[in-house]
Amino acid sequence: GIQEIVAMSPELDTYSITKRVKEVLTDNNLGQRLFGESILGLTQGSVSDLLSRPKPWHKLSLKGREPFVRMQLWLNDPHNVEKLRDMKK
């Protein structure tokens, strides 16, 4: 599951990941809330907090790293936007 992926993950640049996620969401007119609930399993508040103030990787616990790994996996998925759009319906 995701825990193994997080444990094996190389250090991620949390700042550039969140910046990229925000760009993709904005460009495709997708909400942070939808993204947070569907992709990260987080509430709106947690998501906007994460996206606006990402902590550096080395300061995060494994649990804290999980959303960033999920974001990275989502960014790597060529169908990420379509999938999210489908969830919106």
Rank of each mutant, 00 (worst) to 15 (best):
G1R: 08
G1S: 14
I2D: 11
I2K: 07
I2L: 08
I2G: 06
I2N: 12
I2C: 09
Q3H: 08
Q3F: 05
Q3I: 06
Q3A: 08
Q3Y: 10
Q3E: 10
E4S: 11
E4D: 11
E4W: 04
I5F: 12
I5E: 14
I5C: 06
I5P: 08
I5Y: 09
V6Q: 09
V6P: 06
V6F: 07
V6E: 09
A7P: 06
A7W: 05
A7R: 14
A7M: 12
M8K: 13
M8I: 06
S9Q: 09
S9P: 07
S9E: 09
S9D: 07
S9M: 06
S9A: 10
S9T: 14
P10T: 09
P10S: 11
P10I: 06
P10K: 12
P10A: 09
E11Q: 09
L12N: 03
L12I: 12
L12E: 05
L12S: 02
D13E: 04
D13S: 04
D13W: 03
D13T: 01
D13C: 06
D13V: 00
T14C: 04
T14A: 01
T14D: 01
T14V: 05
T14M: 02
T14K: 02
T14R: 02
Y15S: 10
Y15N: 14
Y15P: 05
S16Y: 15
I17C: 02
I17N: 11
I17G: 02
T18I: 11
T18E: 01
T18M: 02
T18K: 00
T18S: 11
K19G: 05
K19A: 10
K19C: 07
K19N: 10
K19H: 06
R20Q: 13
R20E: 07
R20F: 04
V21A: 02
V21Y: 01
V21N: 03
V21W: 01
K22T: 08
K22R: 09
K22E: 08
K22L: 09
K22G: 05
K22F: 03
E23K: 15
E23L: 08
E23C: 06
E23V: 06
V24H: 06
V24L: 13
L25S: 01
L25Y: 02
T26M: 10
T26L: 11
T26Y: 12
T26E: 09
T26S: 13
D27V: 14
D27C: 13
D27L: 11
D27H: 10
D27G: 12
N28F: 14
N28H: 12
N28Y: 10
N28A: 12
N29H: 02
N29F: 08
N29M: 13
N29I: 03
N29G: 13
N29T: 05
N29R: 11
N29E: 10
L30H: 02
L30C: 05
L30G: 01
G31P: 14
G31D: 15
Q32P: 07
R33D: 12
R33I: 10
R33H: 12
R33K: 15
R33C: 15
L34M: 11
L34Y: 08
L34T: 09
F35M: 00
F35S: 01
F35Y: 03
G36R: 03
G36W: 03
G36E: 09
E37Y: 06
E37T: 11
S38P: 02
S38H: 14
S38K: 15
S38L: 12
I39C: 05
I39Q: 03
I39K: 04
I39M: 00
L40I: 02
L40F: 04
L40W: 04
G41M: 07
G41S: 08
L42P: 06
L42Q: 07
L42V: 14
T43F: 04
Q44K: 14
G45M: 10
G45V: 09
S46I: 12
S46V: 15
S46G: 11
V47S: 06
V47M: 09
V47G: 04
S48T: 14
S48G: 14
S48I: 15
D49A: 11
D49L: 10
D49V: 09
L50F: 07
L50A: 04
L50D: 04
L50Y: 02
L50I: 09
L50N: 02
L51A: 01
L51E: 04
L51K: 00
L51H: 03
L51G: 01
L51Q: 01
S52N: 15
S52M: 13
S52F: 06
S52T: 13
S52H: 09
R53W: 06
P54G: 00
P54I: 03
P54M: 04
K55A: 12
K55V: 14
K55Q: 10
K55R: 09
K55F: 06
P56S: 11
W57H: 02
W57C: 02
W57Y: 04
W57D: 00
W57K: 02
W57L: 01
H58M: 05
H58Q: 15
H58P: 11
H58S: 15
H58A: 14
H58K: 11
H58G: 09
H58I: 09
H58C: 15
K59M: 15
K59D: 12
K59G: 10
K59Y: 09
K59T: 13
K59Q: 11
K59V: 08
L60T: 00
L60W: 03
L60S: 02
L60E: 03
S61Y: 00
S61R: 02
S61H: 07
S61N: 12
L62W: 08
L62C: 07
K63E: 12
K63C: 05
K63Q: 13
R65P: 02
E66N: 05
E66W: 04
E66V: 07
E66D: 06
E66A: 06
E66C: 03
P67G: 03
P67Q: 15
P67A: 15
F68L: 00
F68C: 01
V69C: 06
V69F: 05
V69W: 07
V69M: 11
V69L: 10
R70C: 05
R70F: 00
R70P: 03
R70E: 04
R70N: 07
M71P: 03
M71E: 02
Q72W: 10
Q72S: 08
Q72G: 04
Q72C: 07
Q72I: 04
L73K: 15
L73W: 11
W74V: 01
W74Y: 04
W74L: 00
L75C: 02
L75A: 01
L75F: 00
L75Y: 02
N76F: 04
N76I: 05
N76Y: 05
N76G: 09
N76S: 11
D77W: 01
D77Q: 05
D77C: 08
P78A: 07
P78D: 07
P78W: 03
P78Q: 07
H79P: 00
H79W: 10
N80W: 04
N80V: 02
N80C: 10
N80Q: 10
N80A: 14
V81E: 00
V81L: 08
V81D: 00
V81N: 02
E82H: 11
E82Q: 13
E82P: 10
K83L: 07
K83V: 09
K83A: 08
K83D: 08
K83R: 10
K83C: 07
K83I: 12
L84W: 03
L84T: 04
L84R: 02
R85E: 07
R85K: 13
R85T: 14
R85L: 15
R85Q: 12
D86Y: 06
D86R: 10
D86P: 11
M87I: 13
M87C: 13
M87T: 10
M87P: 11
M87H: 11
M87Y: 13
K88E: 12
K88F: 05
K89N: 08
K89S: 08
K89C: 06
K89W: 06
